[in-house]
Write a protein that binds this DNA or RNA. Structure first.
Length: 487
RNA sequence: GGUCCUAUCGACUAACGGUUAGGUCACCAGCCUUUCACGCUGGCAGUGGGGGUUCGAAUCCCCCUAGGAUCACCA
């Protein structure tokens, strides 16, 4: 059997990280088995329509490196790939169930349904639809129901779940799942606006799109018996199911938008590198070996094994994500990094820097940050003389005799023709030996005068980057301020 | 509350009946060092509890407990 899987999001306006993981696992599974990965937009809820939601979804998926073999924009022989354009199909199959007496009309208002649930709750037990007591074609008879419909009463179509027996299905991740029919609700299949609910549309589409494996989040597990029953009602083969463990927040509850940090584009905006983010997400719920953390997409494809995906939910740990991001940041080559850093610098208000200069800055700071966007502020002294000086640092490192100790070195530095890492280093080292002082006694004052900060890249690299002329100017300014007591 | 799912260090996970229960993040210590980092070395830390099955259980079965999901004319 050909492997055909689908990622079927509803266009809510953003891509949830859990959705990204689902899409990714679908993609990996398809690629691994030489199958097809399909994107189907499930927009049957007209009350939740969001402009540009589909475009947003696709662009975020593409950012993550996930492409689809069949979709709205790429086409395919099983389209349309958006449910609102498949309307007639659902109506047709809803009717078929009605004719087979596997579905029925129901006329209950939302108040009546709420009342029913109140009653059932008081009696204890489940809240499932009480088919034999409500207003529907089972209690009133089909003739009466047709009359109401002709009179313009609004109605829904519900599935008629058998009273006896049980529903069994095999989940690739969880094994056999069994639910007694009496616990399965008479799900609404077609809403009063004529649109199908997820359950009907999903089953019909998966069948006609020849989906072989349904890979989706665990939140769908409780409604899977309904879907299995629908396949049986229609006489169709059931696809294989794989319900992925949930992504959890630090409180171990399902990651939800209310708690923030769940939209892929937010992570993108914060500066996470795509490969790092995808790598991290892929390892939430599965690890091919257990002794490695960094994998390429191709390696993930080669190693992917649905049956080895975890059953328990996974907590989304920002700290490990940050580490992951840094790992990828360190490995970024300058061709990739320079434009990114340049853009960040421009946001910071620094433009017109030489590519080579920007590349050097990246090399010096990539191991000191988690995100590229931290670099501009950290390196502000490279673009203008420092406005302020770290007071604690100054108190600790600038002593009574420091000025006199540093002046001869500055004089020697000013005579240097070449102002490079090596030349400044060699000169300073020689001076230290000659004057019998430790490097540290001079490095800190130099750093303070030049950058105002207590941390940063190596001092000789920093001096070379700032340039001799500017360094001299800063030394002079700083010493003058010291003498005048301004500092 | 009904139903279903789940349970290995604080977190992500490996070990698919036989290991001193391994790796990674975080944390701690040390080394490196002109700062901050990076890096390196080491450390802390786990099979929720109770019964079985077995020569042998983290692994299979049962019960308990705990957590989660779901019970919409949302997906």
């Amino acid at each position: 059997m050909d492997v055909r899987v689908r990622f079927a999001p509803s266009p809510t306006g953003y891509l949830h990280v859990g959705g990204l993981r689902t899409a990714l696992y679908n993609y990996l599974f398809a690629k691994k088995h030489g199958g097809k990965c399909i994107l189907r937009i499930e927009d049957t809820d007209r009350t939740r329509f969001v402009d540009n939601a589909t475009e947003n979804l696709i662009s975020n998926l593409r950012w993550a490196g996930i492409e689809f073999d069949e979709s709205l924009e790429n086409g395919g022989e099983f389209g349309p790939y958006i449910q609102s354009e498949r309307f007639d199909l659902y109506t047709k199959y809803g009717k078929e169930l009605l004719e087979k007496d596997l579905a029925y009309y129901a006329f209950d208002t939302s108040d009546e349904l709420a009342e029913m649930r109140d009653r059932l709750q008081k009696e204890g037990g489940s809240f499932k639809y009480d088919r034999n007591k409500m207003r529907n074609s089972v209690t009133m008879g089909m003739d009466e129901a047709k009359k109401l419909i002709d009179a313009g009463e609004s109605y829904v179509i519900r599935m008629k779940v058998p009273e006896e027996g049980e529903v069994k299905f095999n989940d690739i991740i969880r094994g056999e799942v069994t639910v007694p029919c009496k616990d399965v609700d008479d799900q609404i299949l077609l809403k009063s606006d004529g649109f199908p609910t997820y359950h009907l549309a999903n089953v019909v589409d998966d069948h006609f799109m020849q989906i072989s494996h349904v890979i989706r989040g665990e939140e769908w597990l409780p409604s899977t018996p309904k879907h299995v029953l629908l396949y049986q009602f229609f006489g169709w083969d059931t696809p294989d199911f794989a319900h992925l463990p949930l992504l959890l927040n630090e409180k171990k509850a399902k990651l939800s938008k209310r708690h923030g940090d769940v939209a892929v584009e937010d992570f993108k905006a914060k500066g996470y590198l795509k490969d790092a983010f995808v790598n991290f997400i892929a390892l939430l719920g599965w690890n091919p070996t257990g002794d490695r953390e960094i994998y390429t997409m191709q390696e993930f494809i080669d190693l992917f094994d649905l049956s080895k995906v975890n059953k328990a939910g996974a907590v989304f740990d920002l700290k490990k994500l940050a580490w992951m991001n840094q790992q990828y940041l360190k490995e970024l080559n300058s061709a990739e990094a320079t434009p990114l850093l340049k853009a960040e610098l421009e946001k910071f208000g620094v433009s017109d820097l030489e590519e080579d200069f920007v590349a050097q800055i990246f090399d010096l700071f990539k191991e000191r940050v988690t995100f590229i966007n931290e670099i501009p502020e950290m390196t502000d002294y490279l673009y203008a003389e420092p406005k302020e000086f770290d007071e604690k640092y100054m108190a600790k490192r600038w002593k009574e005799d420091t000025a006199e100790m540093v002046k001869p070195l500055i004089a020697k530095l000013s005579e240097l023709n070449e102002f490079t890492h090596d030349s400044t280093h060699d000169l300073t080292k020689a001076y230290c030996e000659e004057a019998d002082v430790k490097m540290g006694q001079l490095m800190h004052p130099l750093r303070l005068m030049l950058t105002g900060k207590s941390s940063g890249a190596g001092m000789f690299d920093t001096m070379a980057l700032i340039g001799k002329e500017e360094c001299m100017k800063r030394f002079e300014t700083f010493l003058a301020k010291k003498e005048s007591g301004e500092l």
